[in-house]
């Protein structure tokens, strides 16, 4: 007992009291923030954990999938790549996603440049018109598009049903509506004196756009490109109506087909597919993260 008398600081009781006291203050300062943060993390991550667990679950059924992995097997991934057309679906999704993102970014950057830098007849009407058309989203037009493309498929099979090009062209139809306002808001924040002085130096409008403005608006290009990629990869309704041949499907449509019939048995394979499909988006997201917050809110503040 003598030891405890001489070294009171090390006794169990004292330590608990001290730490407890400190913890109380720490908790009121920042600890509760960590608690909320951890709760938010748990909510965000538990479905993803479940997907990971189901993907490596050797039994591969929904009923045997637990929240925490119970085994580690790559059987589901093997089945995904060998027994289903997933490699083709994945490739379709990537080609459509990347091209749709890049092209729609480009056409809306062009339009935003015109709306931000030039004053012309019909400018205000054009901006409001774009806003109005955006409220009539493409999938609301699914019946009309279906009938249109039935006709297109007869005349030009290369861009008809079950082709990547046809779906890509269709997605580009929505490009102006979604991105132009966001981009114009960002373009407006770049001082006009810059292009004026470049023009005085003899630069053409194309040189101003490609050489001067585009490099300055990289953040908003990154954001619209990322959002365009995410929405094209995730688009389900139009793709499911347009792509019925197994080889033409995107990953979203193909994966839906996996669990729409044999829900319980295919769940592991489906989860593996969801994980593989998430990889490019998550990678892009991490890569572009520093632009995202700034890009999104800059457009929002400017309206």
């Amino acid at each position: 007992m003598a030891a405890t008398d001489t070294l009171p600081a090390t006794t169990g009781d004292e330590t608990v009291v001290r730490l407890g006291g400190a913890q109380g203050g720490w908790f009121r300062q920042v600890g509760w923030r960590h608690l909320v943060g951890l709760l938010a993390l748990a909510f965000s991550l538990f479905p993803i954990l479940f997907v990971v667990s189901a993907a490596v679950n050797p039994l591969g059924t929904l009923s045997s999938s637990e929240l925490v992995p119970t085994g580690a097997s790559f059987e589901n991934f093997r089945k995904l790549f060998v027994d289903t057309a997933f490699p083709t679906w994945f490739l379709n999704s990537m080609v459509i996603g990347l091209l749709a993102a890049a092209l729609s970014m480009f056409v809306s950057a062009c339009a935003a440049f015109a709306f931000s830098r030039y004053r012309f007849r019909g400018r205000r009407a054009g901006l409001l018109g774009i806003l109005l058309v955006q409220m009539f989203p493409q999938f609301l037009l699914i019946v009309a598009l279906y009938i249109m493309f039935a006709y297109v498929s007869d005349l030009w099979p290369a861009v008809g049903f079950n082709t990547r090009t046809g779906l890509l062209l269709l997605y580009l139809g929505g490009a102006l509506g979604t991105n132009t306002w966001l981009m114009k808001g960002f373009f407006d924040t770049i001082p006009k004196d810059l292009d004026e002085s470049a023009k005085v130096d003899g630069a053409t409008h194309a040189q101003v756009f490609f050489g001067l403005i585009l490099p300055l608006v990289t953040p908003i290009l990154a954001v619209t490109g990322l959002l365009g990629f995410i929405s094209a990869v995730n688009e389900f309704l139009i793709a499911s109506v347009f792509l019925t041949d197994d080889d033409a499907k995107t990953a979203a449509v193909g994966l839906y087909g996996l669990v729409s019939e044999e829900r319980n048995n295919n769940f592991g394979v489906f989860a593996a597919g969801a994980l593989v499909l998430a990889v490019p988006t998550v990678a892009l997201f991490q890569f572009l993260q520093r632009y995202i917050v700034g890009g999104l809110t800059a457009g929002a503040v400017k309206g």
Partner: peptide, 9 residues
């Protein structure tokens, strides 16, 4: 992270 996961899946 959920925002980057494929929403359909």
């Amino acid at each position: 992270l959920p925002y980057a996961m494929p929403a359909v899946a």
